[in-house]
């Protein structure tokens, strides 16, 4: 069976030449191309550029600028997992109801399943893979291990990212506050009390998060 490999989103993000080649072919073949798209295609620095098949955009992920061309329907979550190989961010429900896909966008905890990647053009995204300082784990990652704030591990990256944000936001003042502000992160194994302990300890010890 033949497959259209061009339709597969590229694993390698930098592929400007190929993109433009394809764009120009696409435009040439599209008699009904909307005017704004054609104009946009000529001004690539203004924002994400493209049409309903592909858009080109750039994101800074874990400190590294990545230029990608993707199907505009791709969520930030799917771009991270499918195109960038950053599978630490999890897809639990895909509807913003479980928190497993939590990442930081421009410093705020965000559900990556509920935002189209194209909307995040120019944003700075931090995923679980970018939280630690090389081999040195983030204090909350250490605390999760120490307090066993996990079992199956699937919700864990989201819990950690959310927990870090919870501390930074100033919502880790008490166990009750942590529970309320962490309630957007579901854990079916039931590691909640240990997660709360981990967050409170990091907050109490005052390590830089």
């Amino acid at each position: 069976m033949d497959i259209d490999h061009d339709a597969i989103p590229p694993d390698v993000p930098d592929e400007d030449r190929r993109f433009f080649l394809k764009q120009s072919m696409f435009i040439a073949g599209l008699s009904m191309a909307p005017v704004d798209f054609l104009q946009a295609a000529l001004a690539p620095d203004d924002g994400p550029v493209g049409n309903a098949v592909k858009v080109k955009l750039s994101l800074t992920v874990n400190g590294k600028r990545r230029r990608i061309s993707i199907d505009p329907r791709m969520t930030l979550l799917d771009v991270l997992r499918e195109n960038m190989g950053l599978t630490g961010t999890k897809k639990g429900c895909d509807f913003g109801q479980c928190g497993a896909c939590t990442v930081h966008v421009d410093g705020r905890r965000t559900l990556s399943c509920l935002t189209f990647a194209v909307m995040q053009h120019g944003s700075k995204v931090t995923t679980i893979e970018g939280l630690s300082d090389g081999e040195k784990l983030h204090p909350l990652q250490e605390a999760f291990i120490k307090h066993d704030g996990l079992q199956c591990g699937y919700c864990t990256p989201g819990q950690v990212m959310s927990g870090v944000a919870c501390i930074r936001e100033g919502h880790a003042g008490s166990a009750a506050e942590v529970r309320e502000y962490m309630s957007g992160n579901l854990c079916r194994c039931g590691a909640y009390p240990n997660i709360v302990d981990a967050i409170l300890e990091v907050k109490k010890e005052g390590a830089k998060v």
């Binding site: 928190g99 559900l111 935002t115 944000a165 919502h171 309630s183 957007g184 992160n185």
Partner: peptide, 9 residues
Amino acid sequence: GASGQLRNM
């Protein structure tokens, strides 16, 4: 309403 993440978005 919602959660910390959703309120951020």
